[in-house]
Design a protein around this nucleic acid. Sequence first.
DNA 1: CCGGCAGGAATCTATTTTAG
DNA 2: CTAAAATAGATTCCTGCCGG
Length: 343
Amino acid sequence: MPSGPVTLADVARAADVSLATASRVLNGSVRTVGPVLREQVLAAAAELGYRPNPAAQAMARGASDLVGLVVPDITDPWDAEVAAGVLEVAREMGLLVSVVSTGHDPELELEHVSSMRNHRARAVVLAGSRTSGRDVGRRLAAEVEGFELAGGRVAVLGQRTLGTDTLLLENRPSAKALAASLVEQGFERFHVLAGPKELVTARDRVAGFKDGTAGGRKSRLGEVVNGALSREGGYEAALELAASVDLRGSCVLAVSDTVAVGALAALRERKLKVPQDVALAGFDDLPVGRETTPALTTVALPLRDLGRRLADLALGPLPEDDGVRVERVPGEVVHRASTKRRR
DNA sequence: CCGGCAGGAATCTATTTTAG
DNA sequence: CTAAAATAGATTCCTGCCGG
């Protein structure tokens, strides 16, 4: 009885076959093994309690089973949906995903990419919005480049700051379309809950809101209030907004659905009825925004599908021209009760 | 159908070299 | 001549490719 973990060699010896044959039976191969030897190997493996060694398999196959995934905050439904899409594809391919939730700390993101590189992961998916920190960005770019040079694949969701396959969210055009559609419905006064100043995604959306509300004789844009990209951030920003201006008859554009949900609570507290007194719109089309009263007007992003497409970019076949692929993802404006005009 | 063997990289063992 | 350090070699995991 051998000591330590049971190896393929132990099984092969017990079944009286070659290493190669045992491998083909137990861990799969293009080729088939005759029924007699197959049974011998299976019996021996069961008897000994054989478990394959993934490290050794990675070596022999020249590719590991590991995929890295970085999200800013896995407790955020947005991140969770995208992650679910990535996990679906990875599971279908029999791959193992190592997820890190960075809490918006770029250093942690860098650390995980570095760790995945050390582990010889097959690919890394970065699903966090880039922040404007230049030095960390450069070090991340260097780490990503090193990882790719070593044969790893990288796919990024968000901005095009790394020279890798990217899904580009059309935040600005979508935000513009949302705002413009509300102008068309007759809203004349807009305020913005803008989220964090340093978050590129938030900045793009705010720019889109400005684009969409512009035009005509005078500006329709009122206050722009920054805050955290969270329910609490939205709540506080909305309180601040309600304290500084009279919101009646205007439309509040929130930079995300979570922010809008917080704002909804603040407005209710201020005895402002949505949409009778003030209209409110969000962004992302999270499930939570459909279940609020009233349901939120928003921009729908196919989040789970985004995750799947990211995984496809990172794990699927390489493009013919082996160039960098950048796919644009449009959002879809969805009108619901929170911006209904009273007749 | 089946067996032999190379190969990545860490880790353990043996051998040789160097220092004191 | 002993002890430590540097160097070399062996071992370990499994699979894809090649040969019979």
